[in-house]
Computed example of a mutant assay.
Amino acid sequence: MDKHLLLVHAHPDDESIGQGATMAKYVAEGVGVTLVTCTGGEMGEILVPEMEHMAADKDDTLADQRKIELDNAMKELGVTDHRYLGGFKRYRDSGMKWHEDGHAIPDDTIHENAFWHADLTEAANDLVAVIREVRPQVLVTYDEFGGYGHPDHIQAHRVATYAASLAAVPSYRRDLGEHHDIPKIYWGAMSESRLRAGLRLLRDAGDTTTFEGMDPDGPLPPFVTADENLSAMIDGTAYHQQKMAALAAHATQITTDGPFFALSNNVGETAWGLEFYRIAKGERGPLNEDGLETDLFAGL
């Protein structure tokens, strides 16, 4: 079996944060890896002062810069097949704002070409063509809330889920390729116990600013998953440095003195080298002592 993994993400940098180590690991093992990014990330916050002119309310050229950053990040991970849904700039970053309850919601003003406004079937068809071309055994995307409520993450979940269903129908849009049923679908996840342990180490070391407001013993944001709901854990600690290099490549969005690197420095390779998943379709293969798969292709 020629193994192939397909990942569907909303913006450049989401892939490196969520599954950078997994991607690097599978590439190193000879597995085909395809990344589909749904938007150009036009509405992202710019952390580099000299690039602030690229913002949406100024030159509106951030997508071009983030494309370069994504290219560089994929080189760090070894991923050679990465695409934009429907082509570069087909769908625009929808932006977001924060709800008082601490999760993201759609902004008051959204661009007419925003991904959030995309026709679901039209966007899904763009992905159906990719699915039928690369014929993955495993698809990874977000949960139904997009992790923390970002409209583009939610839309990516919807598009990926619908496209996977449509792609499997033999009589549906034959012009998009021969039908293909993806055996296993996963949602990216973050382990509650791992995050609490990491936060505890940070707070014990006197760091109160990394993931500010999060209490190791208190309530956590919606992107955190209770361990009982986890299905798989990929040990990508051997590829931890590649993941951190990919994160650093997204320079307008992630700083090396930010929370991802602070947690990594304090907790070590397991902070971001261990990546977790919830299974949404398919049967799990053999489990480890923690009741988790250690290979997303297990059982196929």
Score class of each variant (00 low, 15 high):
43 M>T: 11
182 I>W: 13
123 A>S: 13
54 M>S: 07
293 E>G: 08
236 G>I: 03
253 Q>H: 06
186 Y>W: 04
68 I>N: 04
232 A>K: 03
34 T>Y: 04
209 T>H: 09
205 A>D: 14
117 H>K: 15
85 L>N: 05
199 L>W: 02
136 P>C: 13
279 I>H: 02
96 M>Y: 14
67 K>G: 00
165 S>L: 14
153 H>W: 03
178 E>F: 02
63 A>M: 09
107 D>W: 02
153 H>I: 09
184 K>L: 06
63 A>D: 10
252 T>Y: 02
95 G>M: 03
211 F>H: 04
125 N>G: 05
7 L>G: 12
278 R>C: 10
104 A>Q: 12
36 V>Q: 04
247 L>A: 10
168 A>S: 15
276 F>S: 15
285 G>F: 03
27 V>A: 12
228 E>Y: 00
73 A>L: 09
212 E>I: 11
283 E>I: 10
103 H>T: 14
125 N>S: 03
282 G>S: 11
33 V>G: 04
80 T>H: 05
260 F>Y: 14
279 I>M: 14
167 A>E: 06
28 A>Q: 11
37 T>S: 07
21 A>C: 13
208 T>H: 02
217 D>F: 12
64 D>N: 05
109 T>F: 06
243 K>F: 02
237 T>P: 03
185 I>C: 14
131 I>Y: 03
60 D>G: 04
91 Y>R: 10
211 F>G: 01
145 F>L: 13
225 T>M: 12
296 L>G: 11
227 D>N: 14
216 P>N: 06
31 V>Y: 07
5 L>C: 11
101 D>N: 13
262 A>S: 11
149 G>P: 01
3 K>M: 12
120 L>F: 05
17 I>G: 02
236 G>M: 03
29 E>V: 01
113 N>P: 00
265 N>Q: 13
190 M>S: 12
194 R>N: 12
293 E>K: 08
133 E>L: 02
172 Y>K: 09
155 Q>W: 00
120 L>C: 11
44 G>S: 15
88 F>N: 08
181 D>I: 05
37 T>N: 10
139 L>R: 06
17 I>A: 01
66 R>D: 00
263 L>C: 04
21 A>L: 05
172 Y>H: 12
60 D>V: 03
243 K>A: 05
24 A>C: 09
10 A>Q: 08
